[in-house]
């Protein structure tokens, strides 16, 4: 008995956590990914060009950053529906600060700070109320949408100078800067989840909040920290998207909340929390990017695309229940 048990221990202890939970749901995702690639490549050879693949990564970069942050919330049994509206607020804070001070550095700080503050407020509301995160952040989402419109006065805040030169136009070794930012976010979240007490507490709270409390974990404080952390990612995404667009718009984050949560769920993190990986989330983000890109190349209309996206999200959730 002892020898097979020991070999299990040694073989799994070196494996990175990201690959451990390969199960039915995850394979389905990979198969769908491959099918999309094959079908589109046959329909349009341009699809597999380096240019197009880079284009896809560029397009999903802000989404990938937001989804990285959302991953740890879902693992902890939480959820933040306000990330899209918070993204707009962070972007507008960046654009407005650059416009009034002329300083890109201050603009970046303002955007990131806006994300963190909004996240921390969400965290406090969630940690101290019995209402579900879904309802609480639905409320803050609506509030922040209003704030974004007030901030912008209803029209775009244009001109971000150096920010646009870096994130909108710049690249390094042929890869646009926002793509680096996305992979850096994924890596950062991977490290947090696997190597820090904060990450471990997120798993414990999502898996069994009462057991976490009885183990002496300061559950409220950790929840606030997790929402603030997710807010940090949202703030970064807001800054980058502002650079990409060379402007701040009150609608720039619209729909990001659903796509981010969809990417996390497609990536195998269950909505009830307790498990999940950010590498799965990366897969989910890429899947969403590939689908909309392939539909563009195949000439599918925008309305139909939205329906397909909805089907994918629904299928991901249903598959997960089985797995």
């Amino acid at each position: 008995m002892s020898s097979p048990a020991a070999s299990v221990a040694s073989s799994t202890s070196r494996k990175p956590g990201g690959f451990r939970s390969l199960d039915i749901g995850r394979y389905t995702l990979l198969i769908v990914l491959l099918l999309i690639v094959v079908v589109t490549a046959i329909g349009n050879p341009r699809f597999l060009s380096v240019n197009n693949l880079m284009n896809i990564l560029f397009q999903v970069s802000a989404l990938g950053i937001v989804a990285s942050g959302q991953t740890i919330l879902l693992i902890a049994g939480g959820l933040d529906l306000s990330v899209g509206a918070a993204l707009s607020v962070a972007g507008l804070a960046t654009a407005l600060t650059i416009m009034s001070t002329g300083s890109v550095t201050l603009g970046i700080l303002a955007g990131v700070a806006a994300g963190v503050v909004v996240g921390a407020i969400n965290g406090m509301l969630v940690a101290t109320n019995r209402a579900t995160p879904f309802i609480i952040t639905l409320g803050t989402m609506t509030f922040l949408q209003g704030v974004a419109i007030l901030m912008s006065g209803g029209s775009p805040i244009n001109g971000t100078g150096a920010l646009f030169n870096v994130f909108g136009l710049g690249d390094f070794l042929g890869v646009p800067w926002p793509v680096y930012a996305m992979f850096a976010s994924i890596l950062a979240m991977f490290v947090i989840l696997r190597f820090t007490t904060l990450g471990r507490y997120a798993f414990a709270i999502g898996g069994n909040e009462e057991a976490a409390r009885l183990s002496g974990i300061p559950v409220r404080r950790i929840k606030i920290a997790l929402y603030a952390l997710s807010g940090l990612f949202v703030g970064v995404a807001g800054v980058i998207l502002t650079g990409i667009l060379d402007s701040g718009l009150p609608s720039m984050g619209t729909g990001y909340e659903l796509r981010a949560i969809a990417a996390v769920v497609i990536g195998g993190t269950p909505l009830i929390g307790g498990r999940g990986t950010v590498l799965g989330t990366l897969g989910g983000v890429l899947l969403l990017g590939l689908v909309s890109n392939s539909m563009n190349l195949l000439g599918v209309g925008a309305n139909f695309q939205s329906a397909v996206l909805g089907l994918i999200i629904t299928a991901a959730v249903l598959l997960q229940k089985k797995a």
Partner: peptide
């Protein structure tokens, strides 16, 4: 109230 069922033996012991 006791164990976190989604986590490993090691992670439960160290919690």
């Amino acid at each position: 109230r006791g164990l976190v069922m989604s986590l490993s033996i090691a992670k439960n012991i160290s919690l």
